[in-house]
Design a protein around this nucleic acid. Structure first.
Length: 796
DNA sequence: TTGCTATGGATTTTT
DNA sequence: TCCATAGCAA
């Protein structure tokens, strides 16, 4: 039943050199389903790629029989790079990619069966939101009651769960309305020939589920399915994998439940347990040998995560010594915290304390939320330390680029109303809100797209709109047969975009970016042979199998198709432009701020996942911030915060700093937060307090000294200590002493009862005495601000 | 159509 | 505090 090919010499392959026993076992697993529990820094990617290389080298599979899925383009690229360095194999022809990239490829190949135009456009999150806004306006949906963002979240959530509108339970009137909007949105997308990210997955899944020949074909083809970061898969992605895995396939899932930090966007750690059960997984291997960090760092991570109840269970170990202790620093203010960091970094770069100076790019500052970067940036900037902030707009998300892409998209697909709306009056050409409204009304009445409705608009508005459409049409004809580069250059000129930004005072960067777009296209064409993501090969690999039986075409369905002659007669190929547009949507590009410079790296803990640095600062370790207040009212949320902290700690190779501040400016208010509870969950022996321990605000304010967990947050309180002494020259101006201890007896996360609103969770506390107020989340009535001198809140 | 002011909201993010 | 967005005036 399973493949019997296991060559005797296989375990001697040089590929297996330098692997530890667990890694080797994982790489050489028999062809059966397996789960690899891969701890941070345990060589996960190495195992994954070596496994593929080993399977290929030992002849157990040919390149076409492998399906390897990742979440990010970066991970996919890394896998391909490493694989091609191990074996002389054409990785570009292999099915290695992101979930969405592979679904895109699949849908292009089978667009007819998927009921899509071959050159369907992909809506990114921005596009999706504007499509929803447009739709809601058109159907007069009250955007107060149904905020577009929330509707978007609802739709994306449904798709992540694999639910079409008719499958969603309309439990209340509100949901019923949302389902209705979802339904209308679907119709709109279909009419316009566009798909959002969720749709790429969902439609691929449905095609596999409903079309027996297709499903069986791919099941026979993909004998080895490998999935990276399995803990991050959502319900739909898991279902998709189940469709692709046939009786002869082996699924190798690699993941780490302790690093599951994306529940908020639909990730389901439970997929790991489900996988083991539903696939009857025979092999589970734990990779616990860590090659990244010293043991003080690792012990801290292990101890912390042991406080989580829901775990598959795993403990990292290292052969490296204890290394330096984990340094803990308390500061008086966020400002002082940043100053201290800058000074510490300068010493690190100079080389004090370490054998040699540390490169700036080997220093990372991690924080829980983006808002925290500001103070740090200011301090770094003032000190003249180069830094790079991750996150923010990426290349293909920039407004000017989106505008240019919208022109290009209309060339491919005039019915794309999202793109139409974006540029119909940009650069301004006298088509105002009223003209557009007129056009939209006409389009709705006729049930057609905006372009098609243009001819029905009369008067000056009609003339202007007509001129716009004519311009696009002319452009489409002019660019026929041009190279991608020529098309883009022509569009940039003819659209007036370059001209427009050149005239703008601060448009120089934008012009530069637009010019960069040409380069992006150029490198896409040369590097990717325009089309790894968006099949530009003879498209319908399956063309025969769909219309006639494979046997009748002399194709052997049991041999991977990559080994068989491709059908080049269908002649159906995706245009380079359409391929590039898909690429732009699926790979939003780096945010290339100060690229190339040796700079300190600033990022959220989330975006640090998968990275590693010699030296890591984890900042803002305060109750309410980390763990974040929005996540600490329930067990699952808190455990995810803890995993987040675990991810943060395990980024560090040699040196780790943890810091928190007594006061912090947030949303224009000074907040007084106790230090994070995570400090209580770290091994004291691995820590070194740079500031005296237990002088902290938090521990000093335990109401009940017997119960160390009773803490007050943000409620103000005194600090009699002379903190400037502790923080040395970096101390900020003394914070005015506030003596009034909180009298209300509330704390964050506490369940309280209110006579009118019922039970709720305290999510914010601020102010002192009569000014004290609390923000409470009532499941029935939503989030309310309550003045504590007025409202009677009784702890439950 | 632009540009000002008021307003509200403010984890985490890839594709 | 600071940002995006909405509404309104010129």
């Amino acid at each position: 039943m399973f493949s019997e090919i296991t060559r005797p010499g296989a375990t001697n392959s040089p590929l297996l050199d330098n692997l530890n026993p667990e890694q080797r076992a994982a790489v050489t697993l028999p062809n059966e389903h397996a789960l690899i529990l891969a701890g941070a820094g345990s060589g996960k990617t190495r195992v994954l790629t070596t496994r593929i290389a080993w399977l290929l080298q030992t002849g157990q599979i040919s390149p076409g029989g492998v399906l390897a899925v990742t979440f990010t383009n970066k991970a996919a690229r890394e896998m391909m790079t490493r694989l091609s360095s191990m074996l002389p194999v054409n990785v570009r022809g292999m099915w290695i990619g992101t979930f969405h990239g592979l679904c895109n490829r699949f849908l292009r190949a089978h667009h007819k069966l998927a009921n899509l135009p071959q050159s369907f456009q992909i809506l990114d999150t921005q596009d999706q939101l504007s499509a929803i806004k447009r739709l809601m306006k058109q159907f007069n949906v009250d955007d107060e009651r149904f905020p577009p963002k929330q509707t978007q979240w609802f739709i994306a959530g449904c798709k992540e769960d694999g639910l079409r509108p008719n499958m969603v339970e309309a439990r209340d009137e509100e949901t019923r309305k949302k389902i209705e909007i979802y339904q209308l949105y679907e119709e709109q997308c279909q009419r316009e020939g566009v798909v959002d990210f969720g749709e790429l997955m969902l439609r691929s899944y449905e095609l596999l589920r409903d079309n027996d020949p297709i499903r069986e074909h791919y099941q026979r083809r993909f004998r080895h399915i490998l999935i990276d970061e399995f803990q991050d898969t959502n319900k739909l992605q898991y279902a998709w994998i189940k469709q692709l895995a046939g009786p002869e396939s082996s699924v190798l899932a690699v993941g780490d439940d302790d690093q599951s930090i994306y529940a908020f966007r639909g990730a389901r750690v439970g997929n790991m347990a489900d996988f083991v059960r539903e696939f009857g997984v025979k092999h589970q291997i734990k990779l616990e040998q860590n090659y990244r960090s010293y043991s003080n760092i690792l012990d801290s991570a292990n101890e912390l995560i042991s406080h989580n109840s829901k775990r598959l269970g795993k403990n990292l170990r290292t052969d490296q010594g204890p290394g330096e202790p984990v340094r803990v620093y308390e500061s008086t203010s966020d400002f002082a915290e940043a100053q201290w960091m800058v000074d510490e970094m300068r010493q690190l770069v100079r080389g004090e304390g370490l054998d040699a100076g540390i490169a700036r790019h080997e220093i990372a500052v991690l924080y829980r939320s983006n808002a925290q970067s500001r103070v740090i940036e200011t301090a770094l900037f003032n000190a003249g330390v180069p830094y790079r902030v991750y996150g923010g707009l990426r290349f293909f998300e920039r407004a000017e680029i989106k505008h240019a892409l919208a022109y290009l998209r209309l060339l491919e697909n005039p019915r794309d109303d999202t793109s139409f709306m974006r540029i119909v009056n940009f650069p301004p050409r006298g088509i105002g809100a009223r003209s557009i409204e007129q056009l939209q009304d006409a389009a709705r009445a006729a049930g057609c797209s905006l372009v098609d409705a243009v001819s029905t608009v009369t008067g000056k508005a009609g003339a202007n709109l007509g001129a716009f459409v004519a311009r696009i049409d002319v452009l489409r004809e002019q660019t026929l047969g041009m190279s991608l580069r020529e098309i883009i250059e022509m569009v940039l000129g003819a659209s007036g975009l370059i001209e427009h930004y050149k005239a703008e005072r601060e448009g120089a960067d934008r012009v530069e970016n637009l010019e960069e777009l040409v380069n992006a296209a150029e490198s896409f064409v040369s590097q990717e042979g325009f089309g790894r993501d968006a099949v530009a090969l003879p498209v319908d690999e399956l063309g025969h199998a769909l219309t006639q039986s494979p046997a009748s075409q002399g194709l052997d369905p049991y041999r991977p198709l990559a080994d068989q002659p491709l059908d080049t007669d269908t002649g159906e190929t995706l245009s380079p432009l359409a391929a590039f547009l898909a690429h732009a949507a699926l790979e939003s590009g780096d945010n290339q701020a100060q690229a190339g410079q040796d700079a300190v790296q600033l990022m959220t803990v989330h975006s640090a996942k998968g990275l590693e640095f010699d030296c890591v600062f984890i900042t803002g370790l305060e109750e309410g911030l980390f763990p974040h207040e929005n996540s600490m009212s329930d067990q699952d949320g808190l455990e995810e915060e803890r995993r987040l902290m675990y991810v943060a700690i395990t980024r560090a190779r040699k040196r780790l700093y943890l810091s928190y501040s007594q006061t912090r400016m947030l949303h224009g208010q000074t907040r007084y937060n106790p230090k994070s509870r995570f400090f209580d969950e770290l091994p004291e022996s691995a820590l070194k307090w740079l500031t005296p321990k237990n002088q902290g605000f938090g521990s000093g304010f335990a109401m009940n000294s017997g119960a160390g967990r009773e803490r007050y947050s943000r409620a103000g309180g005194g600090f009699g200590q002379d903190y400037s002494r502790l923080t040395g020259q970096y101390a900020s101006p003394p914070v005015p002493a506030q003596k009034a201890a909180p009298s209300h007896g509330l704390r964050l996360g506490l369940q309280v009862f209110h006579t009118k609103f019922g039970e709720g969770t305290v999510i914010t506390l601020e102010g002192v005495g009569d000014d004290a107020r609390a923000q409470v989340n009532f499941p029935r009535h939503g989030v309310k601000w309550l003045a504590l001198s007025v409202a009677k809140l009784v702890p439950v």
